[in-house]
Every structure is written in C-alpha cells, then in structure tokens.
Amino acid sequence: MIDEAESSHPATGLDEVVHQRVRLGILTIAHEARRVEFGYLRNQLELTAGNLSKHLSVLEAAGLIEVEKGYEGRRGRTWITLTPTGTAALAAEIGRLRKLIDRIGTTITEEDR
C-alpha cells in the first residue's frame, strides 16, 4: 500500500515561508555560518536593507530565526541565528526540492519512452 504522504506531489508540501528564493538564501547562509551578520546577508543576497529586514521579519515571526541586536564599539550590529525549527524547515525544504527534481526527472524519462 502506498503511503498518502509519499504519493502526493512534492510541490504540494512546499512551505511558502521557506520556499522563497531570498528567504531560502537567508536560511542557507545562517545554517552554514552558524551565526550571520545583517551586512553579510545584504551583500551576499544583493538586497537593500529594507527588503532584507522584511524577509527577516517574516522568518522571525515564523520562529525560524532569532535576531540579536548589539553594539561593537559604536557600531550597531545585528546577528541572525537559525532556530532548531529553522534548521528542520531548511532540511525539509531541501529534501522536497530534491524529491521534486527526481520526480521531474522520472516524468521526463517516462515521456521520452
């Protein structure tokens, strides 16, 4: 018997908060870096400060990241850390994307026959 979750198309399980290019990028960088500063994210993702702030707010509201504001000397710095929920969400999203690619690959192969 085929499990219902397994038989459903991987695209139906995609989380809209995570399945967004910029937000997926933020989660990826935060995961890889353990802890990342606002300026690094802005440079790597080529975003304006306002745009990045909006995406961070969405991720923070979803409980996927923690934002910590502080000072280094006189300079204000904002550090972003992935929460355990964020780590799980990122892993799930990457898993779904891989499944989707496999599914697309299988469909194309079947159509070729």
Partner: peptide
C-alpha cells in the same frame, strides 16, 4: 533576486543557489 515565490519547476535553480 526576486521577492516572489519561485515555481516548483525552478527547484533545480534553487538547489543550485543553495549550494
């Protein structure tokens, strides 16, 4: 980068960006 959700067909590109 766009701020819109990316369609499922772009999965390959998304994964490549992640990597």
């Amino acid at each position: 980068m766009t701020t819109d959700s990316v369609p499922a067909g772009d999965a390959r590109r998304l994964l490549s960006d992640v990597r």
